[in-house]
């Protein structure tokens, strides 16, 4: 019989197989830990920090940290949900997210998280950064205004498509996604039905000419918050009450 580890998340008993991450164990137990860069079927990356939990009082990313016997994990606390909300706010102001004109609206994981957290306006100042788009490929568009540097496309291309279509260039605020060719995506072997495109959580890496095909009201997050499909035990805090004043002083 395979050995199982026992630990707790917010006081609830959870079991994990050796080597399994806290996030995978939480999913199996019906507990949702918010996430953006983690995706089932891809290796963990630990970029967005949205899944940060406290493990025996120390912060760890749940998508990369293996579960261990007896650990005490805190997930749905006011402090952690506040940190997550701040991270979402930062992602909105550091890019250019014009949701009203975005093909991904309604199906976008970043927007859906903002809805779930009841964010009415980000608390930070909008940066309006200058970002280039790559429309070189006949079927694929990269709009860096919406890219959150989660590397899901990079990992999906390597691990699922067996390709190497893109990678990151630059550091800090200059870091951006670039096709692995000198002339943009047209110089790569990317194809419109690559898993890499489907993996993008936002409207950054897109298949051309299929936008806005789902009517409003029938999109993925129009009626149900992101993560609710995972939850047997919904989080306490999923409506707006304490965030009406979206912009802090």
């Amino acid at each position: 019989m395979e050995q199982t580890l026992e630990f707790t998340i917010d006081g609830l008993p959870v079991t994990a197989a050796p080597g399994e991450t806290i996030m995978a164990a939480a999913d199996a137990a019906g507990i949702y830990i918010p996430r953006l860069c983690a995706m089932k079927g891809l290796s963990p990356f630990g970029a967005c920090r949205l899944c940060t939990v406290l493990v025996d009082g120390r912060s760890q990313s749940a998508c990369t940290q293996p579960a261990a016997a007896g650990m005490v994990v805190e997930n749905d606390t006011e402090q952690l949900q506040g940190f997550r909300k701040n991270l979402i706010d930062m992602l909105f102001v550091e890019g250019n997210h014009f949701c009203m004109a975005c093909e991904k609206s309604g199906n976008c994981e970043l927007q859906a998280l903002a809805y779930r957290f009841g964010i009415l306006a980000p608390k930070y100042q909008y940066q309006f950064p200058q970002r280039e788009i790559d429309a070189s490929h006949p079927d694929v568009l990269l709009d860096r205004n919406r890219c959150i540097l989660c590397a899901r496309c990079v990992r999906a291309s390597q691990e699922l498509d067996g390709k190497e279509i893109a990678g990151f260039v630059g550091r800090g605020g200059e870091k951006h996604l670039a096709a692995s060719s000198g002339c943009g995506f047209v110089g790569t072997d990317v194809a419109a039905d690559d898993a890499a495109l489907a993996a993008c959580p936002v409207g950054a890496l897109l298949r051309k000419r299929v936008g806005f095909s789902t009517p409003i009201g029938q999109r993925k997050y129009d009626h149900q918050p992101i993560g609710c499909e995972k939850e047997l035990r919904p989080e306490k805090s999923s409506t707006t009450s304490d965030v009406q004043k979206g912009v802090a002083s």
């Binding site: 949701c99 903002a114 809805y115 009841g118 129009d222 999923s238 409506t239 707006t240 009450s241 009406q244």
Partner: peptide, 13 residues
């Protein structure tokens, strides 16, 4: 009264 908006009333589009 406090403004409490249910999930489906917060939309960015």
């Amino acid at each position: 009264q406090p403004v409490e908006l249910p999930y489906e009333l917060i939309k960015y589009d």
